[in-house]
Design a protein around this nucleic acid. Structure first.
Length: 877
RNA sequence: GCGGACGUGGCGAAACUGGUAGACGCAAGAGACUUAAAAUCUCUCGCCGUAAGGUGUGCGGGUUCGAUCCCCGCCGUCCGCACCA
């Protein structure tokens, strides 16, 4: 019987409309079933969705649909990370208002996402640039200010003098602004900061509890937070040095107080107060410090930068022996904002210090040798020894382990007085810095404060929120339009009523994405959250997104969750219980011509042929051969992009979804290929053909699995697959689920064809219908439109999207007989099929009867027989 | 430099963390149906060998009845951090 080909262009919009009409995916906060919150990282509205989005949202959608079928009350929302620079760049280039540009992009991309058939609750959609959203963000900011989690301080920034804006480190390329190309200056600006360091220890400790996060991400965060335990030690300046330094001591942070007797110099940062004091009266020092500051802008230069120092002529006294005097250098490798901006150098125990000492001819005293070494002969030449070991040349520390020496020095110096304070203090240090959120830009959330000459920094009263971005701005002049707006920045002080001015900085867009997951739980609320509702929905059970957000976004969100707890908007610490980082979608590249004159060619403009067993690419227009290049992340510059719209238009959303979930494990990159997509499309068509051809007969019999007879194997295959796919979905192993489903379709092909031919009895048809239902339900999370179409053609009422997950029959899943591989000396030589519950003796007796075994033994007794129940038999001869 | 991950057919991969290596898909080849093509269906497909058989999970060792999996030493690829005291 002939059926029509499955036409996704007809079926997909139809089912999307149906889901929308019946509000299938709108979530009710008052539903009392167990909750499940699945969230994919929301997109930046750049203009169009790309394949990476398709993969990300397809994965989330499988989870959402699967959990819904399993009976959970699922929250699966979507929104837009809508503030940020590209909108301003577009404004400058194309004279379009950032707001218009952004909302137009959102409209386009919303349409694209809807065409994917995602089971999203669109009723909760918002964009972070919606006034309603950023008003609540300002509310949070004020609450955090009140709790002391927000403060202002002077901070060094990369300043682009042409664009008149602050640049992020990654926007500085070889010391120049990425847009303007101007030499970037280091400027001191007063900036707003979030006190993320307040939670440093907790952010670190809690990582242990995030057992559903990738180990890799936890490790990255751990390193980023960078906890170290050490000692701050005060070094007294020699009398003669005090006047020039304008102080009497230098404080140093060290994690290796055990190596103190190896100290041969002190090095301070160019920004250290002592360096500044010296520079004031010495132009050479001033020049050196300037040079140190300049090198800080170039990332590449840092790697190879030579270790340079300037001998200040100052001396400090050794804390363990005042008679020892140690020279003080200004060094280009010492950072002012880590530790105390000053270090002591122990050349024998640190490669960098050793290089420095060799360069400036400072003494190198080995103080630690590896355990079991010989103290008399141990020397350090060109390689420092920075491991643990035994103390030498360290007077009263000699013979101790590094660990014991650390403790002994720490105890001694913390109880020893210098002046009227302890000479040293134990100190835990973090690499993590406070989060600077000020951006001198228009398209962001305005920081809700007012600067008054009399009252200082005054928070905007909550009743006056939102502080709304003015629409009448222009981008024809560089700099922040808010800063030069004629009226917006002028405002009366909320305290004294005198003329004052608004803060014109806006917030880093990472702030916007640090709490959107909480807002989704009640996006209509007047307050940032409804704490009762938010606490019930959070944490997000499964968060899915790119590994590129492993550190910043996830760390900031963890911080915000803690801050929102302190301000009463939430009551939990960790926002994301499960995290999954998906791989990219990559594609071959094609290049016409070589070297400089070469041009990238889009996949759509070529055809692939096999010539003498080798794949070759040819230009469609001219037939010219095109070089097939490496497989890389899809990018506009390399033209190796495939537009999801095109794919959906020609193959349908189900094919696109199914393809991005097949083949590669979801955390690895998947290679987009035309052949692969066609394979997925063939699968979709095949399922439809098999089911629809059998449908007229299947629909006349109620589904019922077979317990015996001809259809038993059909029912067994279906129920086994059901069990396996269920486990795969639980582990997000979509590629394995796909393989299982292919297998099931292969086994059902013949039974379905036989049913269609009308050659089978009712019992058989009932079993096949049961199997078909299982197939439809297990593919439904991946190819939901196809599933609905099949479901309906079988005459079923209601939607698959609303159907309960089928239960597998344990009796059909367990085999009565097992086939065991039989090894002889570890190599497989035979198979033995035997009752599943056969005991050891029965197995042994049976295996010895096997021809292959008898041949191997040739009459003699086996040396050993290993029987692993239901696994394997190994006979050693 | 430090930290981490990975390495399996022509390709993407699987193998219940010690038990039949290569499931499933892609590509390729042969055949059936067709006037023909597409679609569909059947079969073959790690390597060497006509075959029996041998061999095989980056390379070299080790533990074990048995190793893709555990241990030691190399080689290679990718990612993160980067003067952090």
């Amino acid at each position: 019987m002939a059926t029509e080909r499955y036409n996704p262009r007809d079926a997909e919009p139809r089912w999307q409309a149906k889901w929308s009409e019946s509000k299938t995916f709108e979530t009710d906060n008052s539903d009392t079933r167990d909750k499940y919150y699945v969230l994919e990282m929301f997109p930046y509205p750049s203009g169009r969705i790309h394949m990476g989005h398709v993969r990300n949202y397809a994965m989330g959608d499988v989870v959402a649909r699967y959990k819904r079928a399993r009976g959970f009350n699922v929250l699966h929302p979507m929104g837009w990370d809508a503030f940020g620079m590209p909108a301003e760049n577009a404004a400058m280039q194309n004279k379009v208002h950032p707001k218009d540009w952004t909302y137009q992009n959102i409209a386009t991309m919303r349409g694209q996402l809807k065409s994917m058939g995602l089971s999203l609750d669109w009723a909760r959609e918002f964009a972070t640039c919606d006034v309603a959203y950023y008003q609540r963000q300002q509310h949070l900011f004020l609450d955090m200010m009140e709790k002391g989690l927000v403060y202002r301080k002077q901070s060094k920034v990369n300043w682009d003098p042409v664009d008149q804006t602050v640049l992020a480190n990654e926007q500085v390329i070889e010391g120049r602004g990425w847009r303007s190309g101007a030499l970037v200056e280091q400027r001191e600006l007063t900036q707003w900061f979030f006190k993320i360091t307040e939670f440093a220890q907790d952010l670190l400790d809690s990582l242990d509890g995030l057992d559903q996060w990738p180990e890799k991400v936890r490790l990255m965060q751990k390193n980023w937070i960078g906890r170290s335990e050490g000692l701050t030690i005060r070094w007294e300046l020699a009398e003669a040095s005090r006047t020039a330094a304008d102080c009497s001591e230098i404080e140093v942070y060290t994690t290796r107080p055990d190596t103190l007797f190896g100290a041969s110099f002190l090095a301070i940062s160019a920004d250290h107060p002592v360096a500044k004091a010296l520079a004031a009266s010495n132009s050479e020092i001033q020049d050196f410090c300037e040079e140190c500051r300049r090198q800080g802008t170039s990332l590449a230069a840092l790697e190879t930068a030579e270790k340079k120092g300037y001998n200040t002529g100052l001396f400090v006294r050794h804390p363990l022996d005042p008679a020892l005097e140690v020279p003080v250098y200004i060094a280009n490798f010492v950072l002012m904002d880590y530790g105390t901006g000053a270090i002591f150098g122990c050349p024998s125990g640190d490669q960098r210090d050793l290089d420095f000492a060799r360069k400036y001819d400072l003494s190198v005293v080995p103080v630690v040798m590896p355990e079991g070494g010989d103290a008399a002969s141990f020397t350090v030449g060109t390689e420092a020894y920075d491991g643990d070991g035994v103390m030498i040349n360290s007077r009263f520390l000699d013979g101790l382990t590094t660990d014991a020496a650390f403790q002994k020095v720490a105890d001694l110096l913390t109880s020893q007085q210098l002046g009227n304070a302890p000479q040293a203090a134990r100190k835990v240090n973090f690499r993590l810095r406070d989060w600077g959120v000020s951006r001198q830009r228009y398209w962001g959330c305005p920081i809700p404060v007012i600067h008054c000459e009399d009252c200082g920094v005054v928070p905007v009263p909550k009743k006056d929120l939102p502080v709304q971005l003015p629409d009448d701005v222009t981008f024809d002049v560089p700099g922040n339009p808010l800063d030069r707006h004629p009226t917006w920045r002028n405002v009366a002080c909320p305290c004294c009523g005198k003329p004052a001015r608004r803060e014109t900085d806006t917030m880093d867009t990472f702030v916007d994405s640090s709490w959107y997951f909480a807002r989704f739980t009640a996006p209509w609320e007047d307050n940032p959250t409804d704490p009762v509702v938010a606490n019930r929905w959070l944490p997000v059970d499964q968060y899915i997104g790119g590994i590129e957000h492993a550190i910043l976004h996830l760390l900031y969100s963890r911080f915000f969750t803690r801050a929102m707890r302190e301000t009463g908007h939430l009551d939990l610490k960790e926002p994301f219980k499960g995290l999954f980082t998906q791989g990219m979608v990559v594609h071959e590249t094609y290049r016409l011509g070589e070297g400089q004159s070469g041009q990238w060619v889009a996949p759509a403009d070529i055809r692939i042929e096999e010539v003498d067993g080798a794949r070759k690419a040819f230009l469609l227009s001219s037939g010219a051969e095109v070089a097939i290049g490496s497989i890389e992340k899809m990018s506009k510059s390399k033209k190796n992009v495939v537009d999801p719209d095109d794919i959906i238009a020609s193959y349908g959303a189900d094919t696109a979804r199914f393809f991005v979930l097949s083949d590669s494990p979801p955390d690895r990159d998947v290679i987009w290929s035309e052949a692969g997509v066609e394979g997925s499309h063939r699968f979709v068509q095949r399922v439809w053909r098999l089911v629809s051809e059998a449908a007229p007969i299947l629909s006349q019999v109620a589904a019922n699995p077979a317990k015996e007879g001809a259809a038993l194997s059909v029912s067994q295959a279906a129920h086994k697959t059901l069990q396996a796919v269920q486990q795969d979905y639980d582990k997000l192993a979509f590629n394995k689920a796909v393989a299982r489903i292919y297998e099931l379709v292969n086994t059902l092909a013949s039974p379905l064809t036989q049913v269609a031919a009308g050659t089978q009895d009712d019992t058989y048809v009932a079993a096949v219908r049961d199997a078909a239902h299982i197939l439809i339900q297990i593919v439904a999370p991946m190819t939901p439109h196809l599933a609905e179409e099949c479901w309906s053609v079988l005459g079923n009422q209601g939607l698959v999207a609303e159907a309960t997950w089928p239960a597998f029959d344990p009796a059909l899943v367990a085999d009565n007989e097992v086939t065991l591989p039989v090894q002889i000396n570890g190599k497989k030589r035979a198979e033995l099929t035997i009752a599943r519950d056969a005991d050891q003796n029965a197995v042994q007796a049976a295996v010895l009867q096997l021809e292959a075994v008898q041949a191997a033994l040739s009459g003699s007794a086996p040396k050993n027989i290993i029987i692993v129940p239901q696994r394997i038999i190994n006979i050693v001869v």
